[in-house]
Design a protein around this nucleic acid. Structure first.
Length: 556
RNA sequence: UGGGGCGUAGCCAAGUGGUAAGGCAUCGGGUUUUGAUCCCGUGAUCGCAGGUUCGAACCCUGCCGCCCCAGCCA
């Protein structure tokens, strides 16, 4: 979606950024718009990035512009080529296409170097010999102005020579930096002579060892925007302080275009963490199984969990774009996921905590096939055959001793419907020495085949089941919030807020046979939506619970 | 006590001087061969205090609260 296929419509989202773009187009400020999504290849994309992706690519599509994918690969000490391909996979999976517009900040290293020289020549930058610690001392504090470095006034000739020697590798990492010469007393600390280039001897994924000096974010980002002719450079709120520097550089350099930066509030989601630092720590310390652990808020994790990309896009769209920073409830995401899956997921039956149910008056050895509706919200989804027999698996908590009136499921003397099958009346229950129910005994009404009684008799409850003789055995992984606290780290160390029960593995579940052939997300009736895991194999099925169904059963 | 932002119901969020959209959640009620879905109903005087105005969530002033910035990270 990088050109004019999807022009702006009346139900296009509205927010302050789109309003501004519309105004810039109307006033002739811009003939066409160009945005960019600029990830640093030092980690996997998470749902917070998805917000930026949807905004940048979305806005470009709505206004008939283009959106570039640009890697901000300016720090080889932290970045890795493996992330570059993973990020591209994730963006594509989310449903966006950058066409030919794949760029890297590193494509511009030679130009950036030349521009740095321009700055030095104009007296707007200088090479500083201060150490990192010294520079911190000279910088001042939030309330006290900084002091000029002793090298601040060295001649352009000297800085030019030193800068060339930095590039040539004559100095050690950290020995010298190139700094902009702006205002050491500025209330905005980003303007107190920010570092433009530093020496880093690390192999770069794209430029190898061609360079040992690398531009900082501030010196690379705006200029890369200009080189790509980005018109609207959309970033998160924490870069608001950098905008004066972004503008200063563009105004003092012979750039080919004049992009503008706009900031919006980043996404915060409850019961999880969305900082790259913390996500990396979760992976490295083994609190999760990897970047694609289904409990992770990463794009790849959500994908493995079974979340459809449409649901992510819809979720982001519903949030809107503003400058207020809030905390979005995880349940909002879950609800959006349910909404999409409800429309698309075929219904199946699976028993996750099985107990045996025996129909005493059903002939031994007899088997039949019943029709199951695949999706009541979509008639075109059709039906499937579900095998039935004398012995079934049913859910342990669908039986209860001395059940209260409100309990609509199995208890001795009560009649319930087996979904798509028959009415059964519970006659007895068998328990082991410890009092645990091991088997539920029932009788069935042969007249109720299909789930309706010809005499019009009603039953209050319907339960799901799987024929014991035909069941597929599977492992099912149930997930809960990764963190018990809505805001991990607010009350104590964030690691302590990890939810010890975020993963529950049910190793012996019984599924109806159709599940052996399903490869997408399905609904296990009355339980939730489940997706085959990457670990799943014929004969060794593994399902992830994407999200449970809403449950309005009375408590207790 | 420096600079930059933000503050509309539990959450997200419209609204930009004319008398508070919508979504999610909650709580009621209806339908239902998933206690699902679906359908109906349900809540705010807009951080606070003054001021301007016939009239302010929207304009002015002063407070209060929250977030970001002192990486040679992005």
């Amino acid at each position: 979606m990088t050109d004019t296929e999807n022009p702006e419509t009346e139900d296009t989202p509205r927010d302050f950024i789109r309003d501004r773009i519309r105004a810039d187009l109307d006033s002739g400020q811009n003939d066409a718009i160009v945005t960019r999504f600029p990830p640093e290849p030092n980690g996997y994309l998470h749902i917070g990035h998805a917000k930026s992706i949807c905004l940048n690519f979305g806005v470009a599509a709505e206004f008939g512009g283009t959106c570039n994918l640009r890697f901000d690969d300016t720090n080889p000490a932290r970045e890795d080529a493996a992330y570059i391909t993973a990020i591209q996979d994730d963006v594509r999976w989310l449903g966006f296409d950058w066409g030919e517009n794949l760029f890297h900040a590193s494509d511009n290293f030679e130009q950036l170097y030349a521009w740095a020289q321009n700055l030095i020549e104009g007296g707007l930058a200088y090479v500083d010999d201060l150490s990192a610690e010294e520079m911190r001392e000279y910088r001042g504090t939030l309330t006290e102005p900084g002091r000029p470095s002793p090298h601040r006034d060295r001649t352009a000739e000297e800085s030019l020579d030193l800068f060339a020697r930095m590039r040539a590798g004559e100095f050690e990492d950290g020995d010298r930096v190139l700094r902009a010469r702006i205002d050491m007393a500025s209330g905005n600390i980003n303007l107190r002579d920010p570092v433009l280039y530093r020496i880093i001897r690390a192999d770069h994924p794209r430029t190898g060892d061609a360079w040992c000096i690398y531009p900082t974010y501030d010196f690379a980002h705006g200029q890369s925007d200009a080189i790509e002719h980005v018109t609207h450079s959309l970033c998160t709120l924490e870069f608001e302080d950098h905008r004066p520097l972004y503008d200063w550089l563009l105004e003092n350099l012979p750039v080919p275009a004049r992009p503008r930066q706009f900031e919006f509030g980043r996404l915060n989601l409850g019961h999880t963490v969305l900082s790259k630092r913390r996500l990396i720590q979760l992976v490295e310390e083994g609190h999760v199984a990897g970047w694609d652990d289904p409990r992770m808020p990463t794009v790849t994790g959500l994908r493995r969990r079974g979340v459809p990309p449409e649901a992510i896009r819809d979720f982001i769209g519903r949030l809107g774009i503003t400058k207020a920073d809030g905390m979005v409830e995880m349940s909002y995401l879950e609800n959006t996921i349910r909404e999409h899956l409800n429309q698309t997921a075929p219904r199946r039956m699976g028993v996750l905590d099985p107990i045996k149910l025996v129909i005493e008056n059903y002939p031994e050895g007899q088997t039949e096939e019943l029709d199951g509706v695949n999706n009541p919200t979509d008639e075109s989804a059709g039906t499937r055959k579900v095998p039935f027999g004398r012995e079934l698996w049913v859910e342990r908590d669908d039986y209860m001793d001395d059940a209260p009136k409100k309990f609509r499921r199995l208890t001795v003397g009560r009649e319930v419907r087996l979904r798509f099958a028959y009415y059964v009346t519970c006659t007895d229950v068998i328990k082991d020495a410890d009092g645990n129910v091991t088997e539920v005994r029932c009788t069935y009404d042969p007249e109720s085949r299909g789930g309706d009684s010809p005499d019009g008799r009603k039953v209050r409850g319907t339960i799901h089941w799987v024929s014991a003789a035909h069941a597929e055995t599977a492992e099912v992984r149930l997930y809960d919030d990764l963190f018990t606290a809505e805001e991990p780290g607010k009350e104590r160390d964030w690691i302590e807020d990890l939810n010890p029960a975020s993963l529950e593995v049910r190793s012996t579940c019984y599924l109806e046979p159709a599940l052996a052939d399903d490869d997408g997300v399905v609904q296990f009736e009355r339980l939730g939506y489940f997706a085959p895991d990457a670990d799943s194999a014929p004969g060794a099925l593994v399902f992830n619970r994407t999200v449970s169904l809403r449950d309005s059963k009375p408590k207790g």
